[in-house]
Design a protein around this nucleic acid. Structure first.
Length: 215
DNA sequence: ATCCCGAGGG
DNA sequence: CCCTCTGGAT
């Protein structure tokens, strides 16, 4: 099967089985999404969703968050990964958005990436989810699943994987393909002992071909 | 022991 | 390129 055929198979499969794939992070507006995605680093969405309601209640807007102190915000974040870093990042992000963008979350990757706590992956998530910009956020799931199936080849960094995926998925599918790969990675193509037995991508998957017909 | 929707700094 | 940050789930 050619790479092109793999992509076509994957698109066809998920359009049938997960046509409404979207983030599992709970949010009502760009500010809440940005906070949730910053907190999501090395942490499950479920745990982020247990943390954010208290934050949004205490700090309803990004301007409110910009006035928070480390002492009062840290306890709300304490139970997720890297609480010290994330506390500083959230306050720094809120200050910059308030001071430099009039309290409006910027909508381009170059602007977002300048915000504290916002790297390439987070900026790609925000722009693709809010605006459907054709940016592919490559996290641990997308990286692993893409490599296994064979959507990426010899990608050693997330940036290399991102470029290959953006080149090969049609531009209008990229934002949803991100969620397809995430959800597949979370529930089927998991890191340890992937559930190939229930996987619908099998016919197009390099990894499955390899484990069933070793060279 | 390994993994979870990474970012920042050296 | 590497390392550190750092808690909870499996």
């Amino acid at each position: 099967m050619t790479k092109k055929e793999r992509y076509e198979y994957v698109i066809r499969y998920f359009e049938e089985h997960a046509p409404d794939a979207e983030t599992e992070l709970i949010y009502d507006n760009p500010y809440q999404l940005l906070v949730a995605v910053i907190l999501s680093a090395q942490c499950t969405d479920k745990r982020v969703n247990m943390t954010t309601p208290a934050i949004f209640e205490k700090y309803p807007t990004v301007q409110d968050l910009s006035t928070a102190t480390v002492e009062e915000l840290f306890p709300l974040i304490k139970s997720i990964s890297y609480p010290n870093n994330k506390t500083k990042h959230l306050i720094g992000m809120a200050k910059m958005v308030t001071e430099e963008y009039n309290g409006e979350i910027p909508k381009t990757v170059p602007e977002l990436i300048k915000l504290p706590g916002v790297g390439r992956k987070t900026a790609n998530v925000i722009t693709s989810v809010i605006d459907h910009q054709p940016n592919m956020a490559v996290d641990t799931h997308v990286f692993r699943v893409s490599a296994r199936i064979g959507l990426t080849t010899n990608a050693k960094t997330v940036l290399q994987a991102e470029k290959q995926l953006v080149q090969n998925f049609p531009a209008d599918k990229i934002h949803i393909a991100h969620h397809w790969l995430i959800l597949h990675g979370r529930y089927v193509c998991i890191a340890r002992n992937p559930k190939c037995g229930i996987c619908g991508i099998r016919p197009a998957c390099k990894y499955y071909q390899k484990i069933t017909k070793p060279a």
